[in-house]
């Protein structure tokens, strides 16, 4: 996914309408593009062409079903470590080498390394955290999700 903003003029008003409307949902019916196109004043083919282009220029990261990874049986946990500055790069290598580490970010804080462990089973999380502690000799703090709140995140395109 590109982290750069699109150049001005890359998307027009119709593209913005599509992005705003289809963030809310896409029909689960035999001719979903036709159903979604009508209220936007577009044709079925017109909508498909525009979505294809939006995907091509990187304005869309995903189009389709969003799956709840945990509901599918995976286990995830946010973890953080306080890594001494002089050891940071060496610890990055050790942590990133672990296949269970999905994302890893450096953050400006005393706890300066934040990563997500992804395992098939919940038991795997604790074991992976202990292995990272063993490899790095640093404490791994686990921040498991205790409750997830409904997300209203929307981009006004």
């Amino acid at each position: 996914m590109s982290r750069a903003a699109l150049a001005p003029g890359m998307i027009d008003e119709t593209d913005r309408k599509i992005l705003n409307a289809l963030q809310e949902g896409f029909p689960l019916s035999p001719r979903p593009f036709a159903a979604a196109a009508a209220p936007l004043g577009l044709t079925e083919d017109g909508l498909i062409t525009r979505i294809a282009r939006l995907r091509e220029i990187g304005a869309i990261t995903r189009f389709g079903p969003f799956y709840d990874a945990e509901a599918m049986g995976g286990a995830f946990c946010l973890c953080a470590m306080e890594v001494p500055e002089g050891r940071f790069d060496a610890v990055v290598t050790l942590v990133n080498d672990m296949p269970e580490v999905a994302h890893n970010y450096e953050r400006a804080h005393r706890l300066n390394m934040w990563f997500v462990l992804a395992c098939e089973k919940p038991e795997g999380i604790e074991a992976a955290a202990r292995r990272i502690e063993g490899a790095t000799k640093l404490q791994v703090r686990c921040f498991p999700k205790e409750r997830e709140y409904f997300i209203g995140f929307r981009i006004r395109a």
Binding site: M1, S2, A5, G25, F26, G58, A59, F66, A157
Partner: peptide, 10 residues
């Protein structure tokens, strides 16, 4: 089932 706009791009 929806579009996820690339928020960086926007």
């Amino acid at each position: 089932i929806a579009i996820a706009p690339n928020h960086y791009a926007l």
